[in-house]
Amino acid sequence: MKLSADLDAFARRLGHRFQGPDLLIRALTHPSIATPSRPDNQRLEFLGDRVLGLVIAEALFQADREASEGTLAPRFNALVRKETCAEIARTLDLGSVLKLGRSEMMSGGRRKDALLADGMEAVIAAVYLDAGFEAARAVVLAHWTDRIAAVEDDARDPKSALQEWAQAQGQTPPDYVETQREGPDHAPVFTIEARLSDGRSAVAQAGSKRQAEQLAAQALLEKVRADE
């Protein structure tokens, strides 16, 4: 089987030449378009999540031999979480080659963090099954190395970091208030305001409440740190 031009271009961006192109096709096939003869990427996603985790854990372990488990764990979580996988997928333009059903396409599936992250993990598994662990490690490190080098010592998701900051200041945990929802039901845009008990706040928008809350927390965290 030969890859189509768009999938071949994606494989080049990824940095892996597939011996079994069907693995890449499966990795990019969302359940919304799967058939008995064309399986979806969910099993590959499961495997890819574990392969990614091992590569990142090993890289962090080797990069800082003095770091404690308590330091390594939040770094690890920051590098393997769905948002990070989705960001990597966007740099590869993975969304353009996802195979989606009509309903998912109409709802903006090519831009959704969850679908992009799942696809990225499935692609990592496809590389692993196609050529082994070393090939999968090479692909992951090629696209994650800069993030590994830059990950903060106390890396945490923004909501957790903001809550810890507030508690350290003797404040109650932040509140997250949905102030607006726009767009059609299949592609909503949420506006979330993160509020501290001292009156400071920040607002962010995103296509999911969870992502909007994280973005609002990050904006507010940056604000309070600038004030210190």
Rank of each mutant, 00 (worst) to 15 (best):
E104K: 12
S96T: 04
A212T: 02
A155Q: 04
D154G: 05
H143M: 01
A204H: 04
D49R: 06
K99E: 10
R111H: 13
A216I: 11
L129S: 01
P21M: 06
A117D: 02
Q19G: 15
D157S: 14
R75L: 08
D22L: 13
L14G: 00
P21L: 07
Q163R: 13
D118R: 15
E228P: 07
T179F: 07
A217C: 02
R195I: 12
A149T: 14
D154K: 01
Q19V: 14
A67R: 01
K99T: 03
N41K: 03
A168I: 03
Q163F: 01
T71F: 05
G199L: 11
L54N: 10
E228N: 12
A136D: 04
V127F: 01
P39V: 11
L215W: 07
Q205W: 01
R156M: 13
R102S: 14
D130N: 15
D146F: 12
S160Y: 01
R195K: 12
Q167G: 01
D49C: 12
L116K: 03
P188T: 04
A166Y: 07
R50Q: 13
K159D: 09
R38L: 15
L54S: 14
P188A: 08
R225N: 09
I148A: 02
L115V: 03
G199R: 03
A131P: 01
A34T: 06
L54D: 13
F76K: 00
E222S: 09
L44P: 00
A11M: 07
Q169Y: 13
F61W: 10
A5H: 13
W144Y: 15
A161C: 14
E182S: 15
V55L: 11
V140Y: 02
L98C: 01
A187P: 06
K2T: 15
L92Q: 03
A136K: 00
S208I: 10
Q167S: 08
R75N: 06
R50G: 04
A194S: 11
Q19S: 15
L54R: 14
T172G: 08
L215G: 11
A150R: 13
V151C: 10
A131T: 03
Q211E: 10
R17D: 15
G183F: 06
